[in-house]
Design a protein around this nucleic acid. Sequence first.
DNA 1: TTTGTAAGTAAGTTTTACTTACCTTTTGGG
DNA 2: CCCAAAAGGTAAGTAAAACTTACTTACAAA
Lengths: 199, 199
Amino acid sequence: MNISAGSGPPGKIKIMDAFSCLMATRDFQSITIAEIAGNAGVTEGLIYKYFTDKKDLLHQVLHQNFAAFQAGIEANIAGKETCIGKLEAIVFASLDSYARNRVLARILLLEVRSSLSYFESGAYAMVKKYARTILDIIQEGMEKGELRPDIDPFVLQKILLGAIEHTCLKQVIFDKKMDVAAAAGGIVDIVFNGVKQHG
Amino acid sequence: MNISAGSGPPGKIKIMDAFSCLMATRDFQSITIAEIAGNAGVTEGLIYKYFTDKKDLLHQVLHQNFAAFQAGIEANIAGKETCIGKLEAIVFASLDSYARNRVLARILLLEVRSSLSYFESGAYAMVKKYARTILDIIQEGMEKGELRPDIDPFVLQKILLGAIEHTCLKQVIFDKKMDVAAAAGGIVDIVFNGVKQHG
DNA sequence: TTTGTAAGTAAGTTTTACTTACCTTTTGGG
DNA sequence: CCCAAAAGGTAAGTAAAACTTACTTACAAA
């Protein structure tokens, strides 16, 4: 189920894999160090050789998963000509990644934000870069005349990020299926065309 | 700073107030039961007389704060004639409440979602009702011809909720000020009118 | 061969959420 | 008026889980 493809000493890989596996069905708080060590087939002490604390393990697993997520996004938008096309691709690819990788979604949307240490982690730096990519495309779209020049690009960025996340929330929390294409289509239709009925 | 106006035995009120006060600057995990008891001027044991566990305390404090939030929202939309006006009022009132009540925002947006017990709490029932109110207004707006009849009302609901939450996120996490009117105006402009430039 | 370092273990310690048994005050019914 | 029962509150103890420390083993390079 969980092929990490992570590099490093075998013990570290086993720890990250065991932890990911547990995170697929349980919340972070309820997973114990003893349980992670047991599932990984190592001792508790080894976990603290590679991770400063339990949260650092969470952040490193997120970092690893988000790297793949980010790479997927960039591959998706590379082919698109228009900024609108790029934004559509980002919405679709983001929803698709979260739907496919529940561990990533659970960690990013439900777990990490509660503690300040996350915002000093390398994982957060990656998330910031992803958000920045969206903002850059919006600003490019405004300059090129694809998007209205009078909108606030930061607000549009937040609407897109918020819509993506909130669309996944229920599915991630209650472990339901999601029609990614329909959801992505619905979001871009509303955000690009608006919902007001034109008399 | 924190006037709870909560009813019940004085010890319970002191506990909830002390906890709220701590939550204003710290994350849930880092706050200990001993600290809450100390700040409240009661013993640790008393906390377990009124709350089944630490999370129940979190949920009850959220419930209390959300009740005021919900009442404010309903007062705000009561005066509005159109559905668009009601939705605008909800976006503004929601952002305003989160900006004014950081404890509510921190609990709701950062803390509770990680554990499943929240979704069985009374606090979550209130949040569901709030989300349902937004959906009802959207469907009414579609029937009355104020909103496009071909949109997915659930998608619009999620865009609005996601936009509201993501707009507050940075401000809440890094404790920054926010221009509520500008943010609310930006969101409703984009969602109602769309961002695509019409040639 | 030696030496230094990375991988891994095993047995603590400490913190912290939660329990149990007890005391004190209020309150309502015969 | 009394007393019994419940509600408000305390103090000490328990158990579990995160984290430490001191140690061993493998192994690569000088």
